[in-house]
Write a protein that binds this DNA or RNA. Structure first.
Lengths: 208, 208
DNA sequence: TCATCCAGTTAACAACTGTTCTCCGTAATT
DNA sequence: AATTACGGAGAACAGTTGTTAACTGGATGA
């Protein structure tokens, strides 16, 4: 199906990816709005002007980073919410999955947490759109659950967004605890688990 | 009690406040890590070097802004959580209070939301410390409530932090909706109210 | 094989940055 | 009244930034 890329397009995608990677690295200790175009190209080892062959601006690169960081996350979300064992075990598994993701892609998580309310409008909007999609997907999964019987669509979405926000908060806390001790990380996991459990408790008694 | 400031110190505090105000204004469309010292002094109409008379660096100014934005908020938090009427009315009042605060100090709210995970470490830490204080205070207020009987200290704090995070999320949503229609703001308020109510429901059935 | 395309380079531009040092005028202190 | 303290101004510094233009050389397609 997919045509093998010419050696030309392959090289282009390679340096494009290098730019994205370098930017993500530099964003560990600054915000996107202070990231310089020259800074990125310098880190890659390429001329400043080469940047324009791939992105119109830093904001443009930021939007691409949002896609990279959140675009591939949708299947994971769906399966996480929909695995059908005991409720408490489901929560425990979700927290573990978040912790694993933070461990595997810390820079992506940091980028999203930082730029969600950051100083670059197009990037904020891209993140907002992706999170809204997550909310919709979680809602659809929640709707399949027998517990959701009698729930209005609005309430399902409100709960879904509550879960999504809670996931992000938890991911951010795991990120902060990443350099800390094992006990600290375990404590974060335990608190996150209980908060999720409390929300789920509220869910079960919502229609009382 | 307080000694009247000399005309010298008064002037100093005045320009210091001007610097803070100007910075807060400029931060409407960028992050702290991209804010320039000259940019701030230019906005105030003062020489770049005058900046050093008040702050060691932009990060230093950021920490001062955290103090200004969150320092005066503690009494409000306490009274909000502890007003003792019907539970649903308490939530409704809390949401209204948040909406009012966002309307009165939008730049402060934006600053906190943006820099909580922003690119300037000392500022992140200052915000984290203040929010931790909020958590403690909310916990103490929660502890007074008869509903909290039988709760462990850890669980009380975990609930308190859940409330604090929810407050911030809600404030941020109000901020986004500030330029939107009245219906949109009302919708935000309604969703926030239901999320709070769901959490409170979970709270009431936590010990089941 | 030859003409075209195009990712990346080089050079140059004016504008901007944080920081240092020296100076000024005036409020505060003696 | 004389001296000190100090907030702010001015000028200069080396270094950085985004963006433009014209150019190069190797892959692409006729």
């Amino acid at each position: 199906m997919s045509h093998t890329l010419g050696i030309r397009q392959a090289q282009k995608q390679k340096t494009r990816q290098s730019l994205l990677d370098a930017a993500l690295g530099l964003l560990e200790e600054q915000s996107l709005s202070s990231l310089g175009l020259r800074e990125v190209t310098r880190a890659v080892g390429v001329a400043p002007t080469a940047f324009y062959r791939h992105f119109r601006s830093i904001a443009d690169l930021g939007v691409a980073l949002v896609e990279e960081a959140l675009g591939s996350l949708h299947p994971m979300i769906r399966t996480t919410v929909s695995t059908a064992d005991d409720h408490d075990q489901r929560i425990e598994r979700a927290i573990e999955l978040i912790a694993g993701h933070v461990h595997a892609y810390p820079a992506h998580v940091r980028f999203i947490a930082r730029e969600r309310h950051g100083g670059v409008q197009p990037v904020r909007e891209a993140i907002r759109d992706q999170l809204a999609r997550f909310g919709q997907e979680v809602k659809e999964e929640l709707a399949k659950d027998p517990v959701s019987e009698g729930w209005s669509d609005d309430d399902l979405l409100m709960l879904a967004n509550l879960y999504v926000d809670q996931m992000l908060i938890t991911a951010s806390l795991f990120l902060e605890a990443q350099e800390a001790s094992d006990e600290e990380r375990a404590r974060v996991a335990q608190v996150a688990q209980r908060q999720m459990r409390l929300i789920s408790t509220g869910r079960h008694h919502w229609l009382d």
